[in-house]
Simulated assay, not measured.
Amino acid sequence: MLLNDLHQVLASYWNQFLYLLPKLALALILLVVAIFLANRLSRLIGGRLHARSHDPLLAEFLTRLSKWAFILLGLTLVLQILGMTGLVGGMVAGAGLTAFVVGFALKDIAENFLAGVVLAFNRPFRIHDTIQIRDNQTLMGRVEALNLRTTLIKTFDGKDIYLPNAMVLREPLINFTRDGHIRQDFLVAVDVAHDAGPERVQQTVLDFVHGFQDVKNEEPHTPYLIVEKTEGSVVTLHVYFWTYSEDYRRGTQELKSNLMQGIRQLLLQQGYAKPATVQ
């Protein structure tokens, strides 16, 4: 009797499998076609967006979004063919605890996805902009990509950091290159014992900064300096200058370094009694 019951159950399952086999085959073919079309259509949409949009970050994000939208549409059709749409809906609606667990597990994914949408349209940064998150030097680098869940930045020492979009949207973000120019500053301490006052060395330093290559001299981005402090015959000057920021790491920082070295050499050549300290 037991063997007969087992045989009947297996036979019933086998008949159901044979009944569903054509649907399974059709669903599999449709899923493959949906993935293929999603890739082709997303590339087509991406090509047109990149050609017409001046913002490659937004174009890339919309391309990725369209790809997953087409795949999701294909998956919905597959479930419809298999007759599982109602079953899945009933399971999710009927199992309250399961729905809660699934919703809690997907909370971060949904939050990061929505944050990615806001970042794509709000555009606080562009591809290759130098940004810093939360005033943290370890979270500073060039933007490489905005994905559906993460923002990829490459640090100046070559590390790839994948930041959750929600974190990028929620935390304070510093963009060093958005406007195309940025102000830099440094201190110059020099002994002016043989001068009547600090005016001569101030003018010497200011003229040198004005004439240095890649230092901006257009209003309101002109170089200037102030006397930070005086200790006896040593005067400390605070030099401010503006420069182009498209290449923040090599362009801006190397320019500052070269400018500081040039001022030190200039003051030494002009015979100041104490070697100039530049920092």
Results as ranks from 00 to 15, higher is better:
residue 146 L to F: 03
residue 148 L to V: 03
residue 149 R to E: 15
residue 150 T to V: 12
residue 152 L to M: 02
residue 153 I to P: 01
residue 159 K to I: 13
residue 161 I to R: 06
residue 163 L to P: 06
residue 165 N to P: 00
residue 166 A to W: 09
residue 166 A to E: 09
residue 167 M to A: 13
residue 168 V to Y: 02
residue 170 R to M: 05
residue 172 P to V: 07
residue 174 I to W: 01
residue 175 N to L: 10
residue 177 T to R: 07
residue 179 D to Y: 12
residue 180 G to W: 11
residue 180 G to F: 05
residue 181 H to N: 15
residue 183 R to Y: 13
residue 183 R to V: 08
residue 184 Q to E: 12
residue 186 F to C: 03
residue 186 F to S: 00
residue 189 A to F: 10
residue 191 D to L: 05
residue 192 V to N: 02
residue 194 H to M: 07
residue 195 D to C: 06
residue 198 P to E: 05
residue 199 E to V: 09
residue 200 R to I: 05
residue 200 R to Y: 09
residue 205 V to E: 01
residue 207 D to R: 13
residue 208 F to K: 15
residue 210 H to S: 04
residue 212 F to I: 00
residue 213 Q to Y: 03
residue 215 V to H: 05
residue 215 V to S: 06
residue 216 K to N: 04
residue 218 E to D: 14
residue 224 Y to C: 06
residue 224 Y to E: 00
residue 225 L to V: 11
residue 228 E to A: 07
residue 229 K to G: 01
residue 230 T to G: 09
residue 231 E to C: 03
residue 237 L to T: 08
residue 238 H to R: 07
residue 238 H to E: 04
residue 240 Y to I: 11
residue 240 Y to H: 15
residue 240 Y to Q: 08
residue 241 F to G: 00
residue 241 F to T: 07
residue 244 Y to S: 09
residue 245 S to N: 08
residue 246 E to Y: 03
residue 247 D to S: 15
residue 247 D to F: 12
residue 250 R to F: 11
residue 258 N to Q: 11
residue 260 M to E: 10
residue 260 M to K: 15
residue 261 Q to I: 09
residue 263 I to P: 06
residue 268 L to Q: 08
residue 270 Q to R: 15
residue 272 Y to P: 01
